[in-house]
C-alpha cells in the first residue's frame, strides 16, 4: 500500500526512570484497517497507547499524523489530531444517558446558551446507526443499565461521533461473553470500514486473528515485528509474543536475548 498512513510511530523511546518501557518502536496504522497491538504483560502496550493519546510524552522518536510529524503535549493535542482512545475502564458516567455520555464535554448549545438536547439526540442516534448498532434501543437509556457490550458500543460510537481518525481500543472484549464479543468485533470491523484507523490492543489471539489487517507484536518494549494478518499464522504470532522471534520474523537472537537479560 502506498497511501500515507494515518499514524506512524518512528523510533519511539519511553523510559520511566530506569525502566525502559519502549525502545525505538515503529508502528504504522492505516485508515480503513484494524491494526492489532499484542504483547505479553508488561510488554509496553498501555505505555504505547498513552504516548499516542498524549498522556505520556515520548523521550525520543516521532509521531507522524497523516504524514506530518507532531509533538503531543497533552491529551488535547491528541484529540485535535483525531485520536480517540476507548479506555478499558470505558470512562462513561453511569448516571447519565447514552446521549449525554456521547456529548460529555462537547455539548451542543442553542443560541440562547441552553443545552440543545434535540440536536444531540439526533446526532447520537445517527452515530449509532452509522455503525449499524442494533443492540441499543433508546439513546435515552441510562448507561448504568447497559451491558458490557452495549457500554463498549457507546464508547466506540462516541469516537465516531467526534469524527476520530484514529481510534485506539484497549482490550475492548476483555470482560465480555461470547455473543457480546462477537458484536463488538463486528463493530470494530465496521469502524474500520468507515475509514477510521483502528488500533486494537488485545490479549485474545482469536479476536486478533479474526479482525486485524495488520499485527504489531511488542516484546519487552521493542516492536518485534509488524506483519500483515494474511502473512502469518496464530502460532507464529504466539511465538513472537513469547520469544520476540519466529523463524526469520522478529528480533535477531542477539537483540531478543539482549533485552531479555
Amino acid at each position: 500500500m502506498t497511501t500515507i498512513p494515518a499514524l506512524e510511530l518512528r523510533g519511539v523511546d519511553k523510559s520511566f526512570g530506569p525502566v525502559r518501557a519502549l525502545s525505538s518502536v515503529n508502528l504504522t496504522a492505516r485508515a480503513g484497517e484494524v491494526t492489532a497491538l499484542v504483547g505479553d504483560n508488561g510488554a509496553g502496550k498501555s505505555t504505547l497507547i498513552k504516548c499516542i493519546g498524549g498522556i505520556h510524552r515520548v523521550d525520543a522518536g516521532e509521531l507522524v499524523f497523516d504524514g506530518s510529524p507532531r509533538t503531543l503535549t497533552g491529551p488535547r493535542d491528541a484529540a485535535q489530531f483525531g485520536v480517540a482512545i476507548v479506555y478499558q475502564d470505558l470512562a462513561l458516567c453511569d448516571n447519565l444517558d447514552i446521549t449525554d455520555n456521547m456529548f460529555l464535554g462537547r455539548e451542543e448549545v442553542t443560541r440562547r446558551g441552553t443545552l440543545d438536547v434535540n440536536t444531540m439526540e439526533k446526532q447520537a442516534r445517527r452515530a449509532l446507526d452509522a455503525l449499524s448498532v442494533r443492540t441499543v434501543r433508546s439513546v435515552h437509556q441510562v448507561v448504568a443499565n447497559l451491558s458490557g457490550g452495549q457500554r463498549q458500543t457507546v464508547a466506540i460510537a462516541k469516537a465516531v461521533l467526534w469524527k476520530a481518525k484514529i481510534v485506539v481500543l484497549d482490550e475492548p472484549t476483555a470482560a465480555l461473553g461470547v455473543v457480546q464479543t462477537e458484536q463488538v468485533l463486528d463493530l470494530v470491523r465496521r469502524l474500520a470500514d468507515q475509514g477510521v484507523a483502528v488500533i486494537l490492543v488485545s490479549h485474545n489471539m482469536n479476536d486478533v486473528m479474526r479482525v486485524a489487517d495488520s499485527i504489531g507484536v511488542l516484546y519487552l518494549g521493542r516492536m518485534a515485528a509488524q506483519v500483515k494478518r494474511v502473512d502469518v499464522t496464530q502460532t507464529q504470532i504466539v511465538e513472537l509474543i513469547t520469544t520476540g522471534r519466529s523463524g526469520d520474523l522478529g528480533l535477531s537472537s542477539a537483540e531478543s536475548a539482549g533485552v531479555a537479560t
Binding site: A79, C93, D94, N95, L96, L104, G105, L115
Partner: peptide, 17 residues
C-alpha cells in the same frame, strides 16, 4: 450537565475535558 457528570464519574468527566 457537568455537575451531574462529575458526580457520576469524576475521571471520565476530566478525560472529557
Amino acid at each position: 450537565r457537568h455537575v451531574y457528570a462529575a458526580g457520576g464519574n469524576e475521571e471520565a468527566t476530566r478525560r472529557a475535558g
